[in-house]
Computed example of a mutant assay.
Amino acid sequence: MSLTIQHLPEQSRFQAVIDGHTCLIEYRLDNNVMHVLHTLVPKEVGGRGIAAEMTRFALETASNNNWRVHPVCSYTVAYLKRHPEYTNVI
């Protein structure tokens, strides 16, 4: 799946609109540490890999900006366990 994901730094979030439903990842940036707080994919569009693609995008953004990632969100914690290629950001 290829999503159009927006990084909205002024709102501290990443978002994609799928079939009229807003999917998002909320974070807080503190001294170059991105605290990933919450991942939301409405049930109407769930099961399509949206959270995974958005999390990958968020982690790539962190890596490209030399940010460390502190995963508060349980989904992000699980994603990082399944994707050791992102250990460079935690």
Results as ranks from 00 to 15, higher is better:
3 L>T: 06
4 T>R: 06
4 T>G: 02
5 I>W: 00
6 Q>H: 02
6 Q>G: 01
6 Q>D: 05
8 L>S: 12
8 L>D: 14
9 P>C: 10
10 E>S: 12
10 E>Q: 10
10 E>D: 11
10 E>A: 12
13 R>S: 04
14 F>H: 05
15 Q>W: 15
17 V>N: 00
17 V>W: 05
18 I>E: 02
19 D>S: 07
23 C>F: 06
23 C>V: 05
24 L>Q: 04
25 I>G: 03
25 I>Q: 01
25 I>W: 00
26 E>G: 11
26 E>Q: 08
27 Y>R: 04
28 R>D: 15
30 D>R: 15
31 N>S: 15
32 N>A: 11
33 V>W: 10
33 V>C: 13
33 V>E: 15
34 M>P: 09
34 M>E: 10
34 M>D: 12
35 H>E: 11
37 L>N: 12
37 L>F: 09
38 H>E: 06
40 L>H: 09
40 L>I: 07
41 V>H: 00
43 K>R: 12
43 K>A: 13
45 V>Y: 06
46 G>R: 01
47 G>W: 08
49 G>Y: 11
51 A>Y: 10
52 A>T: 15
52 A>V: 14
53 E>L: 10
53 E>W: 02
55 T>I: 08
55 T>N: 09
55 T>Q: 05
57 F>P: 02
59 L>N: 06
59 L>I: 10
60 E>F: 00
61 T>G: 09
62 A>Y: 05
63 S>P: 01
64 N>C: 12
66 N>P: 08
66 N>W: 11
67 W>Q: 04
68 R>I: 08
70 H>N: 04
70 H>M: 05
71 P>M: 03
72 V>W: 07
73 C>L: 09
73 C>T: 09
74 S>P: 04
76 T>H: 08
76 T>D: 09
76 T>C: 07
77 V>N: 15
79 Y>E: 02
80 L>K: 03
81 K>S: 11
81 K>G: 09
81 K>H: 14
82 R>L: 11
84 P>S: 15
86 Y>A: 04
88 N>L: 10
88 N>M: 03
89 V>Y: 03
90 I>Y: 08
